[in-house]
Design a protein around this nucleic acid. Structure first.
Lengths: 209, 209, 209, 209
DNA sequence: TATGAATGAGGCTTCATTCAT
DNA sequence: TATGAATGAAGCCTCATTCAT
């Protein structure tokens, strides 16, 4: 009962993902994709009008999947800080489980091979992140600096983490890197850091005799 | 004094830089490079055995130039913190002045078109950065977390900053983004708050008695 | 009464005619024909074993229809001259009413895409024309020159007329062109003129006395 | 001293002419052209940006050559009648000597594969013909009917003649067909007979005392 | 050094045709 | 009868690279 048509389409998408990551867009001929996917050359073009249409579809899917994974469970978190921390952990978890997809997103995030419309549609899945940042700024727990800059930096930091984690040998090392990385990110975002704020809060408590 | 031969070689390199950034590696035919550079197709292959040899040369040059720019004046800085802050500011300044080169580095940082040896040689120019981080850790001013992770995160943060800055309309906005970005980076790197957090936690325990 | 099966076949033929005229044989994919005809790709190949079988069928139909139209009413004409003139007018009338079919015939009259057998069978519909010419020669009203040449020239003249007529703006202009064209054709075919010319000259002399 | 570059280009043009005539535009792959011409596939595209550019060039050349051949010696002819007769004979002579080129012109005269600009430029070579017809009308030796129609009919008649001639077995038969054909054309064009016929009819009336 | 005509492998895509349903 | 997913050969064209000059 598995839809045979869908099977071939999925096989193409899966194979394309691997090959694009491995060899880049221009580096992977459509003929290789179809061969590795076990379909005829014409079949690829039956499902995707163009090589670019193929990568567009792929891009959108991966972005959507990533966004969904990152947003998992954030509603149960009480504030922006914990929400963002959970997003970070979700991202790392998903990235580790889907290294190809992470690499794919990085490779084609600014690629001209992906259509502008696909870029825009892909970006829309992450609007919820900007919302959390905005809430955090309102709460006073996130530094009130340029939101888009924060967003980009957070994204690049997570990406760097995943990159670093993928070289980790043990589970322990991996966990350590995640913790350190999330600390780094949060401390960078936190408005507490001003050392003074901490001092202030802590001080208040400390000062209570 | 201008060696005519060298002129052509330089013209090819300069043109190739622009075109690779604009259109990617596979997207720019060598014929286009030579045409835009005002030389014959054969001339390009006289100076560079291969298209890959051309991009390797380019990559190495840009990396070396970037490293040199980032290291400017760090000897006069007293400690790791100020050194790193100066590196960051140098990087941003250079990146803004050389947008094509920045883009080029990002595009080909992990690219298979650049040979492994070139990647390694290119990376070597940045060893001084890891040294500063190591010193900072020894000084106690930089968090004692994975050095390579710090390095990657710093690099990606700077890159994100430059990206964000390039969309800034006014000089004032630009300066603000730089300051905020460097704050973010430093606060992320700083051991102060981390220390305090640890202190805090430790404090909790301390307070138990 | 409309056989649904036949409906599809007719739809395919009709669509194919338009598309072949518009875009040529190789220029119109069978997939386009079936799409525009509103049938599945497989259906076309159910009714026509091959793309060439389709165009053969089309060719034969159009030729037969044209021949029938051209022969309409010639039995009521008294002699070869009037017969031929009626054939010419019939041809023009039909050609104006069926521009696609005329173009189709011209396009594929010598085309290798139409099988030789179809060409031969198509030509057979026009044998009656050669018969009229033969009769005219026997009557003495048509020049006794190569019959096949006459046939070809008449055909090409009619075709030229139709082409010229299709650029006419007004009905009056169109009628004028038809009359002039038929005059041209007939005068070209007529043996009278030679005779009359001779008679005329002779006549002049005769009249001198 | 024969320009080697030009050699290859000419070989391609010559081969393309034969193949297009033999197999049509879509029926002859560029790969076949280059193979038969003895050059590499890339060479064809070095000289002609596109397959269409190739046929355009070919079309223009053939048209120009045909026009030049048809106009040969007409200046030495005294009047429109002899000029046109010479044009006709020139055309037939050239057509017999260059059967492929004649066929080529017929095949692609209305072809969409030849660009509109090429069609227009090609047509311009034949303006001198329309001029002769105009002069003839002024002289009173050519029927005063639509000039463009005359032009088309003459062209198609000549073409039909050539077609018929190419099936001639003996030189004598060929000469006969040429003479008959030119007679046909001229009688069709001549205003004498038309005029005389009218004169004749009128004359009869006039003679009625 | 420098040129640019020439090469030919290889890429993307089309399309006539088949076949299981 | 009718469908449309699937096929794969073949077409047009690009482009890194060479080589005679």
């Amino acid at each position: 009962m598995p839809d045979p048509a869908s099977d071939k389409k999925e096989a193409i998408l899966k194979t394309a993902l691997s090959l694009f990551v491995e060899r880049g867009f221009f580096g992977t001929p459509t003929s290789l994709i179809s061969k590795e996917a076990g379909v005829a050359t014409g079949t690829l073009f039956f499902y995707f009008k163009t090589k670019e249409a193929l990568i567009d579809t792929l891009y959108l899917r991966v972005k959507a999947e990533a966004a969904e994974a990152m947003g998992k469970g954030i509603d149960r978190e009480p504030d922006a800080k914990t929400k963002l921390r959970r997003v970070g952990r979700n991202a790392v978890t998903w990235g580790i489980a889907n290294p190809e997809k992470i690499t794919f997103m990085e490779l084609f995030a600014h690629s001209p091979f992906v259509s502008t419309s696909a870029h825009e549609e892909g970006m829309s899945h992450f609007l919820f992140l900007e919302n959390i940042i905005r809430d955090g700024i309102r709460e006073g727990t996130v530094q009130d600096i340029d939101r888009h800059l924060l967003f980009c930096m957070m994204a690049s930091a997570i990406s760097a983490m995943i990159g670093r984690i993928s070289t980790a040998k043990t589970r322990a090392e991996r966990e350590m890197v995640i913790d350190q990385g999330l600390d780094y990110i949060w401390n960078g975002l936190s408005s507490e850091k001003g050392g003074e704020m901490r001092n202030k809060k802590a001080g208040k408590k400390d000062m209570i005799p």
